[in-house]
Amino acid sequence: MADHAKTHAPLDEHVAHHFTDAEQQRESSKLGMWVFLLTEVLFFGGLFCAYAIYRSWYPEMFHAAHKALDVKLGFINTLVLISSSVTMALAIRSMQLGNKRQTMYHLFATLIFAATFLVIKYFEYSHKFHLGQLPGKYYTYTGIEGSNPHVFFSIYFVMTGLHGLHVIGGMIAIIIMLVKTSRDRFNALYYNPIEVTGLYWHLVDLIWIFLFPLLYLVS
């Protein structure tokens, strides 16, 4: 690095007292986030396990019940989330290149995609609420054959609901990153928090990549 002395100062002020240098801190926070993502995988894993077992116990019911979900909306939402992942990755890249303005554009785009996802989800939910396709004992719909169709909707709502909460959490993190970027808290050498937020956001996308075919495309 040519202007090492110059870039060193803004970097070191971000290093907490118990780390020896910025690289150690950066690697630590990434490692911490990966371990956190591991817990997230196992958290959702429990739901995937319940899904697999009930699908195998009631294949006909799952097939009948999944028709109540709107593939078109699910498909659009998948595209939206994938796009948000692309913009998130680009936001980090822009900050690596020291381009604050572009970073903010990309973060903002990510936020818009995330909001779009939630709006579409809201319409899906309210349609099902209207029809009585609700989880558990609140299930009042009568149009689906097979044993215990309410179980499908329980699994659907718990899975997408928890995923939705994670989207909201991610949005809050992205807003914080946006504010911090606008206040010049990051630079080409110190962009660690955005990077870690990105990791989390990609996992939210990753989970949806599995939820979409499992819930909407049962065949």
Partner: peptide, 8 residues
């Protein structure tokens, strides 16, 4: 079915 169930 019950009140809320619309035509399926």
């Amino acid at each position: 079915g019950e009140a809320t169930a619309a035509p399926v």
